[in-house]
Design a protein around this nucleic acid. Sequence first.
DNA 1: CATGAATGAGCCTTCATTCAT
DNA 2: GATGAATGAAGGCTCATTCAT
Lengths: 209, 209, 209, 209
Amino acid sequence: MKKSVPSLVKDPELIKKRREQMVKGAVRLFIEKGFHRTTTREIAKESGFSIGTLYEYIRSKEDILYLVCDAIYEEVRDRLAYHLDTNNEGIDRLKKAVAAYFQVIHDMQDEVLVMYQEAKSLPKEALSYVLQKEVEMTEMIEKVIRDCAKEGVINVDDDARVKLVAHNILVQGHMWTFRRWQIQKHFSLEEYTTLQVEQLLQGVDHRPI
Amino acid sequence: MKKSVPSLVKDPELIKKRREQMVKGAVRLFIEKGFHRTTTREIAKESGFSIGTLYEYIRSKEDILYLVCDAIYEEVRDRLAYHLDTNNEGIDRLKKAVAAYFQVIHDMQDEVLVMYQEAKSLPKEALSYVLQKEVEMTEMIEKVIRDCAKEGVINVDDDARVKLVAHNILVQGHMWTFRRWQIQKHFSLEEYTTLQVEQLLQGVDHRPI
Amino acid sequence: MKKSVPSLVKDPELIKKRREQMVKGAVRLFIEKGFHRTTTREIAKESGFSIGTLYEYIRSKEDILYLVCDAIYEEVRDRLAYHLDTNNEGIDRLKKAVAAYFQVIHDMQDEVLVMYQEAKSLPKEALSYVLQKEVEMTEMIEKVIRDCAKEGVINVDDDARVKLVAHNILVQGHMWTFRRWQIQKHFSLEEYTTLQVEQLLQGVDHRPI
Amino acid sequence: MKKSVPSLVKDPELIKKRREQMVKGAVRLFIEKGFHRTTTREIAKESGFSIGTLYEYIRSKEDILYLVCDAIYEEVRDRLAYHLDTNNEGIDRLKKAVAAYFQVIHDMQDEVLVMYQEAKSLPKEALSYVLQKEVEMTEMIEKVIRDCAKEGVINVDDDARVKLVAHNILVQGHMWTFRRWQIQKHFSLEEYTTLQVEQLLQGVDHRPI
DNA sequence: CATGAATGAGCCTTCATTCAT
DNA sequence: GATGAATGAAGGCTCATTCAT
């Protein structure tokens, strides 16, 4: 399911290492000036090698964007998965999940921003792969909601509503970075999290015991 | 507060007319291929005049982007304002506002998408002007919420919560276009509106009498 | 049947003029260092305009090569046609034709050399168009042979032989430029022409009265 | 008289073996895409070793072209020499020589084509060496003609005419590959050979007894 | 005012060659 | 001797912008 970017270099260890450098450098630059205004030479330099070497590990500039988006998604998902793993019970399961998710987004603000703003420049096929990750993220959140519903701590009758709530949560995460110039002026992350959870819970007809 | 784009042409009527052509053409192209992949030549052609003429009415390509973003925001705001004008009472005021807002976004899906995706490429100053419009939009929604609160049909105690709810509504509008590949597969606009309003109302602790 | 190279410039007069400059400059450079070792920048400079302007009149470097080959063939053919026009009778018709052809090749030695050496780098389709010109040239020579045969001054029974003789003549023309480092050391153009005609005539079983 | 290409490797056996691989691979690629469009990496791969190894046996890409041209010439000449060795008498000596030469060219069509098309890219000095082989070939043919003349089976008075006829034969060989898209459509190799010999013989004033 | 030809900085990418392992 | 990762000069091409007509 994962699209692999071909490389002229054979050693897989080296490919991994160099691509990590590359992604790191590219993210820094994309954050600063966006994908289109960043040149491949700048990326090479920021990554610590020559333009020739850069092209030993990718075929085109778009490959870098794909690598960047892929890496960011991977990290977001891994971090989230890690936090969701903790055994929470009852309504806490959802609360902690939201908090964890918001925290991950917060920690990776710039990266998340870049990814959502530049992914559209991906070639069609690559874009599909990346969007698939978004679907996976949604499903992770959906699962938490469904689990809570099964336990009876929240009341979300139909599947459509589960989907909607999941999307809402996801988007409220993005909102923390996309509207930061407004939101973060008024709320700390904790406040934001608390308030959104309250909104959410009432909304899903949570009845405290 | 509005940033005016200088033109070499004097006749204001003409400026208006030409820029309307220009924005219309540019939006079509930006929707299709994005700001960076669209050339000024293409914009001129799509607008129905020569590249030379194009530059009689703007100073740089970025000016076009500003004009486009400005025009789209203007239209969204105007349409929304028009719908909010209708005299609604009680909780309907909010319901109708949300519905109207979602409808406007729906009607202008492509334009909204383009604006939010490309605005980041605006020069700093121009970006500020455009973001200001976002603030205005938020305030329009905030006002509706506050009015409802005053009437007592909803219960939003503090100002922070008002802001948050307003932002949530706004963002749920964007979500309708940004995640359309997911959302619009599962919901019609009416369903989406109904469900989101339900979520919202429960969330703002609306107690039906 | 002629493949036209698209241009961004509209004025046909200008296109013609600029392309003539371009072909002239390119031929000079191709003669000196070949197609692959000549850069588009050099061609632009040699033609007297900027690289940007160059690309207003062509789409790719290969277009230049096509223009060059086309122009050379056109000129060779036109010159040849002009000489064949003269009313000759009897065996003179053939003698004069060969002489005229050799003379044209001689006058355009460098151009002919370049064309035959570089045409292979043309994209497939363009190559076909150019090879078509070669066919036309062959047919012109074939006609002369056939006319002499009809008159009875030479004796070439079947069509295959006509073709062969025509090709031989054509190739003996190329030989004058391709093997010049050998041939032109030993013969003047007149000597070469005389000798080849002699060979040719005996070969086609010419019986002097 | 043979220009030797320096190698970093000492073992002459190895040099020979590797260079044979190299030439074989390079010819395949040159036939397919020409010298300039073939990369050294491709040649290394096609030859079965690494780019690093390739450069152990040559100094530059042009060395490969030289090796290729040299090898092809060598083979053509050897094959031709082998066929000329047979003891023929009278006019058969010439007939068989031409037939043998055409056959060799026919058997090595692609190689011959490549050599004549790419040799021009050789550095000046290397080109001289290669052209020298052409001279040798011409001399081989000249000798056959002269031998026949001495025997009195053909009548070629002066040396100039011998040279010319030799060149004609040589070039008619090339013609079989260079104009194959025309010639081979109309003639089989036997037909071509027969017809060309007829032309030739009549031309050199052959009087059958 | 309108036109469109001219400009050239700058971009992405390739590839012959080197050299440490 | 063999390998292949690293290098960077150089090439083809684009496109925002200008300016003479």
